[in-house]
Every structure is written in C-alpha cells, then in structure tokens.
C-alpha cells in the first residue's frame, strides 16, 4: 500500500514560491491500477516522483508499504555516459537485486543487442524506455510507476509489455500518469484528475475523463 497524507509540494522559483499542490491525500492498495489524468504542467510527474520517493514532500507524509519502482519515463533514471550494462548493474545494486539474474532477463526482454554495451546517451528515447521497463520487470516491484511511456516501441514490444506487465503481473499495483485518456482507460480500474493543485478522485475512468474534458 502507498499512502499520501496531507502532502504538499512547493518549489522555489525566481519570484517567490510555486505551490504545485497541497493537502493531497491518496491511497493505493496492492494490485490496484490507478490512472492519473492531468494537463501538462499540472504536476503529474511531480506526484509520481513523490510516490516513488525520489522527491520529498514539502509537507505531509508518503508511506510506502510495498516495493515501488522508480518512475518509468522517457528520460531520466540512467547515467548517460555509462553503458546500458553499467546502468543495469548500478540499479541492481541500488535496489539490492541480484545482478546475475537481472542482466540476462533484461538482455532478453529489452532486445537492445550490442547497444547494451554502448553509452546510454546514444540511445533513442524508445530504447531507454525499453531498458527501463526491462529492468523494472526483472527486479520485480510490487508497484510500477509509469509516466507516459505505456505505448513505447513497436507493436511487438507493446504486446510483450502487455503480457509481462498486465497478464503475468496482474496482482501488482500500478500508477499510470498520462494526458492521453486512452492509455488510462485501457489499463486502469479507477482514475484521479490533477487539476489546479488538487487531486480529484473518481471511482471509474469514465467519470474522471468527463471531468478532465470539462475542466482542463
């Protein structure tokens, strides 16, 4: 379970303080698949980073009672000048995973071939996303945080993700952030809309989408 309790996040900007959101409460139960809708700049990525713990809330608490992946996104999470393999090793060490079992799994899933031994900065963003997916699947988190990257790669990779993530790992929780409603409709049980510093929960994706269209 992940719980956000009265969470507020502020950034210091050049002229004073920008409050991304405040008094945010959210619960994600094990196995739950939650979608978060919001316009660009509404703080979706910030929220997901708060959920992952990469960023700390200005106020309030984030409680994590299951293992949570890092935000799987197009950018980030890899050190550009290191090779894919070095990055795999690094992430394994950080999460305490077994390198010898993760590396072959990633090699097989990501299908990067010899690129695995090239610096990550030479990768396309799709390749990075594949690598990120592969590693996070190999490490086996209880909750995956997915930032926009749900439809990466070609149809084949898409299908692979579909089986690995949504069929084989059905019991895992998932938070998907997107401004595109179809991604969320496809995979999520319920959805929230992040709008004007507030999180509006909805019991099903349809009403959430209606609210999103009406207000954003």
């Amino acid at each position: 379970m992940i719980e956000l309790i009265n969470v507020a996040k502020q950034y210091r900007i050049r002229h004073g303080i920008h409050t991304v959101f405040s008094d945010l409460n959210l619960k994600i139960a094990p196995g739950e698949k939650l979608g978060i809708l919001g316009r660009n700049g509404s703080g979706k990525s910030t929220l997901i980073r708060l959920l992952s713990g990469a960023e700390l809330p200005t106020r309030g608490h984030v409680v994590r009672r299951m293992s949570v992946s890092w935000p799987l996104a197009f950018g980030g999470a890899f050190q550009g000048s290191l090779t894919g393999l070095d990055n795999i090793r690094f992430i394994c060490r950080v999460y305490g995973a077994d390198i010898s079992s993760v590396v072959p799994a990633v090699e097989e899933f990501a299908e990067l071939g010899r690129y695995l031994r090239e610096p990550v900065k030479t990768y396309s963003s799709g390749m990075r996303a594949r690598l990120a997916f592969a590693i996070s699947l190999a490490i086996e988190f209880d909750c995956f945080l997915i930032d926009e990257v749900i439809s990466v790669g070609d149809a084949r990779f898409h299908a692979k993700c579909q089986t690995e993530l949504f069929e084989k790992r059905k019991e895992r929780a998932m938070v998907i952030v997107s401004h595109e409603a179809h991604n969320i409709r496809e995979h999520c049980d319920r959805a929230c809309v992040l709008h004007a510093g507030k999180l509006h929960p909805f019991p099903d994706v349809g009403t959430a989408y209606a609210f999103y269209n009406a207000n954003c």
Binding site: S52, G53, W70, A77, Q79, V94
Partner: peptide, 12 residues
C-alpha cells in the same frame, strides 16, 4: 549535475 538522472531512484 552528472548524476541528476540517477536521483530518480529514491534511495539515491
């Protein structure tokens, strides 16, 4: 700065 990306992992 060179390690910014690695800070996506919460324990870094």
């Amino acid at each position: 700065e060179p390690n910014r990306a690695l800070m996506h992992h919460r324990n870094v």
